[in-house]
Design a protein around this nucleic acid. Structure first.
Lengths: 143, 143
DNA sequence: TATTGTTATACTCTATAACTATA
DNA sequence: TATAGTTATAGAGTATAACAATA
């Protein structure tokens, strides 16, 4: 038998499936997904970034990032502005995109609250801190 | 601006992307994926379970579970045995499946070790415990 | 009637490769 | 020559809907 209880990879995979399910459910009425919200967050944090940079932050390639931008542009949440390099686009949020992002961040924070309800305030804070440190140490994020 | 540092959903999404990338990389030479290993784990823990039960444990539907079993069967890792209910199949690991699973669990544990290297032993233990509790409270797993 | 497995089909997300226009 | 964006195509994973056999 395998001790799945102490397996980090297995447990975090289970948890992430649930986190994803909850977030997806909360976003479906907005025709949005966790990945789309993350894209808005990246563009908000790095206003004027290129599509290639967006793709790197989302861990997807240029072609996939372009599809994402096409979708968000069609929803009038993101604009492709002229960049210093005429080959590139400078991605910015529209006022509508900013407004929606503000709202969705609130929505997702409430989903988090439900998810974390079984933890004490202390445990919760420490958990987020640990997760943040691991993500920062091991991957590349918005910052 | 949005305080992503304290956003549980955002941070765990980032972390899970990295965990998934690391695991996927470690498994690619075996032509396996995290989801396939999880399927083996489920069948190992619930030997004789049906395809529908496997799908529920993996949070996918019957049709998708069937594709997974087809694949694992083609790799001679899983067998469909006759069940008490003649409509159903009883899923069991082959000796080859058991052997591979044992090995892959070891491989993935080493990936975890690298991932968690920046945490103290205490923090690490507490993190896994917290994650396990959240997954157990919010979702359904193998148990 | 409800359920198990199955099949066919379609959708989403992602990747690869090749093209264009600039640098 | 290298890079940003684009396009076309393909693959993996999942979902839905309908069907057969059995409960």
């Amino acid at each position: 038998m395998h001790d799945l209880e102490t397996s980090f990879g297995y447990q975090i995979r289970r948890l992430q499936l649930e986190v994803d399910r909850g977030a997806r459910q909360a976003l479906v009425s907005f025709d949005m997904t966790p990945a789309r919200v993350t894209a808005l967050l990246v563009i908000s944090a790095r206003s004027g970034c290129t599509q290639t940079a967006l793709g790197e932050a989302l861990s997807i390639n240029r072609a996939s990032a372009m599809k994402m931008v096409n979708l968000l542009e069609a929803k009038q949440l993101v604009l492709r502005e002229a960049a210093a390099d005429p080959r590139a686009h400078a991605l910015v949020l529209t006022p509508k995109g900013n407004e929606l992002l503000d709202h969705l961040v609130e929505v997702l924070r409430k989903v988090d609250d439900v998810m974390l309800a079984s933890l004490t305030a202390d445990a919760r804070q420490q958990l987020v801190a640990n997760i943040r440190q691991l993500a920062a140490c091991n991957g590349r994020g918005v910052n």
